[in-house]
Simulated assay, not measured.
Amino acid sequence: MLDATDAALVRELQQDGRVSYQRLSELLGVSREAARARVQRLRQRGEVRIVGIVPPSVAGITTVAHVSLDVSGPGRPVAAVASARPAASFVSCTAGPQSVLVELRVADEAALEREFTALRAVPGVRGLEVFRCAELVRDAYSPVPAAGPAGPAPELDATDRRLLGLLQLDGRASFAALAERIGLSQPATRARVLRLLDGGAVHVTGLVESRALGVREAAGVGLGVRGPVRSVAEAAAALPGVNYVATGYGRFDVVCGLDAPDRSALLVGLDAVRALPGVARSESWVHLEIVKESYTYDLPMG
């Protein structure tokens, strides 16, 4: 578990992974050197990774689907095969109606069908149940729920995409280090990075190892909705503990992800989602083991 100062530091890094050590010093009431040392220690221990999260639309990802796998026999071998596929951004073994959950993020319908075919061919898989995502209302590690439908993806050139790729790996890379890698001056590199950040092409954040935050339980819940779906999704995104909300069609109208420090808190969170006005039915599952969780994309150069 993190102490109070580290926990406060992590909250700042989640909001802005490139926040300066001087600013952290002022916010936390510690010296600049102490702030730097704490960040470095958290990163060295693997408790925090500071990365650039690129929105799917910017990465050329237009199609997202949650696939529940009906498995005969052990789920772990199936989850291991699924996690090896680059299109799988999230894979978990679950306690619920199905044994394995896979989130797929791909460029188009043809790529999605190829992924379905590959998953059906995995030994032990008897069938698939699919939720097609229409809109990510709150994506994992988003700083705040979206206020409305996302705007068009910003125009990027090859240099921008190289910068995004580097920021995905190290969100706190210095302007000097980035400039050396892409072959531009430091002022030009700084201007590009700030433009990418301000334009929403990347959000630099601290990815925190769940147990370092006291998170011991994670679950998902699918909702059938009466009336407008978007209003239910926005209400769910504002609830404590909800870290993911998507609208779509197929098995559900809305899918949410939640985390909590213990089973009791998880139940409170699930009940809060189920009690939202407009929710007609719900189905939940507990993540027993998260096998893969990745928000890094191969970025096309143009």
Score class of each variant (00 low, 15 high):
residue 27 L to N: 10
residue 234 E to K: 09
residue 67 V to W: 04
residue 227 G to I: 14
residue 268 V to F: 00
residue 293 E to V: 02
residue 3 D to K: 09
residue 80 A to I: 11
residue 98 Q to S: 04
residue 275 A to F: 03
residue 285 W to D: 12
residue 266 L to D: 05
residue 21 Y to D: 15
residue 19 V to H: 08
residue 48 V to S: 11
residue 41 R to A: 15
residue 153 A to T: 01
residue 13 L to V: 04
residue 56 P to V: 09
residue 262 D to P: 02
residue 161 R to T: 07
residue 87 A to R: 01
residue 131 F to C: 03
residue 264 S to G: 11
residue 5 T to R: 14
residue 137 V to D: 08
residue 3 D to V: 08
residue 230 R to F: 06
residue 115 E to W: 02
residue 67 V to M: 04
residue 244 Y to C: 02
residue 89 S to F: 02
residue 209 E to S: 01
residue 287 H to I: 07
residue 245 V to P: 06
residue 280 A to Q: 14
residue 81 V to L: 09
residue 97 P to S: 13
residue 240 P to M: 00
residue 161 R to W: 00
residue 196 L to K: 05
residue 108 D to C: 07
residue 91 V to H: 14
residue 295 Y to L: 11
residue 87 A to I: 02
residue 120 R to Q: 14
residue 149 P to L: 09
residue 232 V to R: 02
residue 125 V to Y: 11
residue 187 P to I: 05
residue 142 S to Q: 15
residue 79 A to D: 07
residue 82 A to N: 02
residue 292 K to N: 12
residue 44 Q to V: 14
residue 92 S to N: 10
residue 224 G to D: 01
residue 126 R to D: 07
residue 139 D to L: 04
residue 190 R to V: 01
residue 207 L to N: 06
residue 130 V to H: 00
residue 165 G to C: 04
residue 156 L to T: 11
residue 288 L to Q: 13
residue 33 E to I: 13
residue 276 L to E: 09
residue 63 T to E: 15
residue 151 G to N: 05
residue 213 L to H: 01
residue 177 A to H: 10
residue 191 A to C: 00
residue 9 L to N: 09
residue 163 L to C: 05
residue 207 L to A: 12
residue 61 I to E: 02
residue 63 T to S: 12
residue 195 R to I: 04
residue 154 P to H: 03
residue 212 A to I: 09
residue 126 R to H: 07
residue 21 Y to M: 13
residue 166 L to P: 11
residue 188 A to V: 02
residue 147 A to T: 12
residue 15 Q to Y: 10
residue 228 P to G: 05
residue 155 E to M: 10
residue 169 L to V: 14
residue 70 D to G: 03
residue 93 C to M: 15
residue 98 Q to V: 04
residue 216 R to Y: 11
residue 258 L to R: 12
residue 173 A to E: 13
residue 149 P to S: 08
residue 264 S to K: 11
residue 65 A to N: 06
residue 122 V to K: 06
residue 302 G to T: 12
residue 157 D to H: 08
residue 136 L to V: 15
residue 281 R to W: 14
residue 143 P to Y: 05
residue 237 A to M: 08
residue 199 G to P: 10
residue 234 E to I: 04
residue 227 G to W: 14
residue 174 S to C: 01
residue 265 A to P: 00
residue 136 L to N: 13
residue 156 L to Y: 07
residue 158 A to T: 07
residue 159 T to G: 11
residue 163 L to P: 06
residue 262 D to K: 00
residue 246 A to S: 13
residue 300 P to H: 12
residue 262 D to L: 01
residue 207 L to Y: 10
residue 11 R to W: 11
residue 183 G to V: 01
residue 257 G to Q: 01
residue 179 A to E: 13
residue 186 Q to L: 00
residue 43 R to K: 08
residue 236 A to E: 08
residue 43 R to D: 00
residue 151 G to M: 07
residue 151 G to T: 10
residue 297 Y to P: 10
residue 174 S to V: 00
residue 104 L to K: 05
residue 37 A to L: 04
residue 142 S to A: 15
residue 122 V to T: 10
residue 240 P to L: 02
residue 162 R to S: 06
residue 217 E to L: 02
residue 133 C to R: 12
residue 114 R to S: 15
residue 254 V to K: 04
residue 171 G to V: 06
residue 203 H to S: 08
residue 193 V to Y: 03
residue 123 P to K: 09
residue 128 L to Q: 13
residue 100 V to K: 08
residue 24 L to Y: 02
residue 47 E to P: 01
residue 40 Q to Y: 13
residue 123 P to T: 12
residue 107 A to F: 06
residue 236 A to P: 09
residue 96 G to D: 00
residue 176 A to P: 07
